[in-house]
Every structure is written in C-alpha cells, then in structure tokens.
Design a protein around this nucleic acid. Structure first.
Lengths: 217, 217
DNA sequence: ATTCTTCTATTTGTATACAAAGATGGCTCA
DNA sequence: TGAGCCATCTTTGTATACAAATAGAAGAAT
C-alpha cells in the first residue's frame, strides 16, 4: 500500500458522504491519525484535498470541519448541474454510438425493474441511486469533455445531492425514470437540443423535489 | 507570517501563470524548498493545492510537473466559460444596482481610454487584461453564486486564458470592448437574455481569436 | 455576577529524519 | 554491439519532533 494518504482520503470522504460525519463536525488531525493508526502527515494531506473539493472547510490554525450546505447552496448546485449536464447531453448526442445508446437503455431498464420490485426502500433506493449515477456519468463521459466532468463532479459530491432518491415521492421517481428514457430517445434521434432540454428539466425537477416548493428565495 | 504554505503557493502559482515555469517543467520538492529557504512540508502542501486546481500534474511517487494545455483543452475551457459566464450575466442582471452598473461603465471607459493611448503593447496589454479580469469578476460577483464563481475560477487560471489580450488583433480588441459596453447596456435595461447572449458571444469570439480559425475538430 | 485577563492545554504549522519507490548508469553476458 | 540486470542515487511518502497559534478555563477586578 504505497499511498496511505489516498486511502484515508477515501475513508474520510465516504464517511462524510454517508452522513456518518455530518453536522459541521470538527476534524482533528491527531484524532483521525490515531484512530486510523497512522501519522498526521497523510491525514493532513487528505483533509487539504477534501477542502479543495469543498467537502470540508479549513480555517488557518483552526483546523477542518465538515462542510455544511443550506438551501441556497443546494439551489446553486442544482442550478449549475442543470446547465452543465444539459450541455453534456448536447455534446454527447452527436457523438453517441449505438453501443453507448444501448448501454444507457440497459440502465433505464434496470432502474425501471428496480423501481417495480417490492424490496424495502432501504435496499431499493441505494441501488437506484447507484444506477442513476452511472447513467449520468456515462453521458458526461460521452461528452468527451474532461473539464466538464470535473466541474460536475465537484458539484455533485455533496451528501444530499448524492442521495437525491431518498426524498423522492413515487410520482417523482416515475417522472425521473421517464426523463431518462426520453433523454436516450432524443439522443438516439440525434436531436441534441431535445436531449439537452429534457436533461435540464430532469435536474430542475430534482431540485424542486429536494428543496420543496416552499422557497421564498 | 503564519502560513508559509500559502505564500509559496502564491509564488509557484504566479510563476506558472506568468509563463516563467511553463513547458511541463518538473517541480522537485526539495529544489523548490531550498531555493525558497524553507522545508519540503509547505512546498508539498502548495503543490498538492495547485494540483487540485489543475495547474500542475502529480503522479504518485513521481512528483509534480507544470500542467500543459493543448487546443482541445482550450476549446473546452472557452466553451465552458461561455456557458458559465453568460449564466452569471443572467443571474446578475436582475440584481444589478445602479452603483454596480456605474462601476462596470467606469471599467469600460478606462479600458477604452487605455486602448486609445499610444503606449507600447508591453505596457498596454497587461493593464487591459487586468481591467478585463475586474470586469468579468464583478459580473460573477454580482451573480451572487459563490459556486459559479469557483467553477469559473478553476477554468480561467490557465496561462493562455489569462493573457487573452496578448494575441488580440486591434479589430478583435475593439469588438471586445464593444461587447463589454453592450453587456452593461443590456444589464441596465434589465434584459438578462440580451446580456447573457452578448456575454456568450464575447467569450466565443475570444476563443476563436485565441485558437485561430484553422481548427478541424 | 459579569467581564476582562492571563495561563495552560490543545491543536495546527513547519522542520527534520527515515523509509520506500523510481530513475539512472554502468556492468555483464550473449 | 546491444540488451538486460544490478547497484546506486535521487526523489517522493510517511513518521516524528518541535514551534507557533488558538481555545478554554480559572482567577482577578469592577
């Protein structure tokens, strides 16, 4: 294991994303180090990296805390996601191969099948969220713009955004899956404006679902 | 001076942005440390931070190099900038105060005055570039979306992008200044679609100027 | 009792030491 | 002569030690 720093980075990151470390909890380097059985150096590196990604806030000489997000932040995030992901659709559509379209269609089917099963929410929702990430990730990859991918990545690794499906109503879930289908259909037809528009609607709908409509702004 | 790491970060950063350290030059921690009279620890931290921002590439156990950008990268960057900065215009327009509009108008005037002086290019262009950054930065600030600002910032701190005016023809420069004026006019009129459209055109025009039209893509 | 101050303990920032992984160069062997 | 291998040297990764800064608490003054 050549890079302790990377593994501890992953550990802290997943701890934050899973909510295990939420609530602006203070992250003391020494504590993390001893609990992981390593020295402060790689812990420190991991924390700075997480800070660069916006997952933790660090103040000089005052250490790191898990970052927090309010409604305004979430609104910003979904706003930008709607723009960037629809742009990804626009770029991806004229480049899409039949194999890639098929891949996306398969994800759609799998998600629809998952939605129909009578598994408990605790089992179904994480699986759906995982497939959802694959779907969106594939389109971003198809856009062939590495920077676009990076920008979106820095936006979405925020706990609530990653767990979007947890707050979905059955109707919202169904709409979401229909959006996925429509996006693929539009891409198949080579209509990038259509595809981008549906993606935009898709993300904005998710925003309202997560934030609720009771926003005064 | 409590934070050596931050100052060395700034030093390396400006060295890269000014082109002083360009060309995928290797950045050896020890060398930088001794040349700055400090230890490797803050140098290392600065390098990791620069890596997170995309200004240097680091490979495990192989150190850091100054990042390089090809035409494809630049195309991506201007593409995304055109989308994000026009969005900033859209958000900023309904929020713009008369004082802010005035501020932007003053920048326009100062830039026009600068363009008319018969100073040498070496003196005029950096001054113009600085004002240009202030103009764009102000609009981003007016958009009141901190994340949007961060995303744009990670895109533009690439040498060639920052020195855009260096490659401008006189005609391109004049067009650029007219764009600025038109953006302010549109914002003054409260027409965010107009403002966003001009901004989009403004950045895409810059892209063609920087890349040249001899692209196959 | 409240506020201000000072002292101490905790925590971060930097330096140094050591271990491990890569790169380099010369050597052997064909 | 050229390819492959071994030794060494450089450079990065991690641990530890020390210095500086902040936070928290106890105590003094009003």
């Amino acid at each position: 294991m050549a890079k302790i720093a990377s593994t501890v980075y992953e550990q802290i990151r997943t701890a934050i994303l899973s909510g295990e470390l939420s609530n602006s909890e203070r992250l003391v380097e020494e504590d993390l180090a001893v609990s992981l059985g390593i020295s402060r150096t790689p812990v420190r590196e991991a924390l700075r990296r997480l800070a660069a990604e916006g997952l933790v806030d660090v103040s000089p000489n005052r250490g790191a805390r898990v970052a927090e997000w309010d409604d305004h932040d979430l609104r910003e995030i979904f706003d930008l996601r709607s723009i960037l992901e629809s742009h990804a659709c626009e770029l991806a559509t004229p480049r899409a191969s039949t194999a890639e379209i098929e891949f996306l269609e398969n994800i759609c089917e799998e998600m629809e099948a998952l939605a129909k099963t009578d598994l408990s929410s605790e089992q179904r929702l994480p699986a759906l969220a995982a497939k959802n990430r694959i779907f969106h990730g594939k389109i971003i990859e198809m856009s062939n713009s590495s920077r676009l991918g990076l920008l979106i990545e820095t936006l979405i690794h925020v706990p609530i955004v990653m767990q979007t499906y947890k707050v979905y109503s059955p109707e919202a879930l169904e709409r979401s899956l229909r959006h996925h289908r429509e996006i693929v259909t539009a891409m198949k037809a080579g209509d990038e404006v259509w595809a981008a528009s549906v993606m935009r609607a898709h993300v904005l709908a998710a925003r309202e679902e997560v934030l609720g409509q009771d926003e005064s702004e």
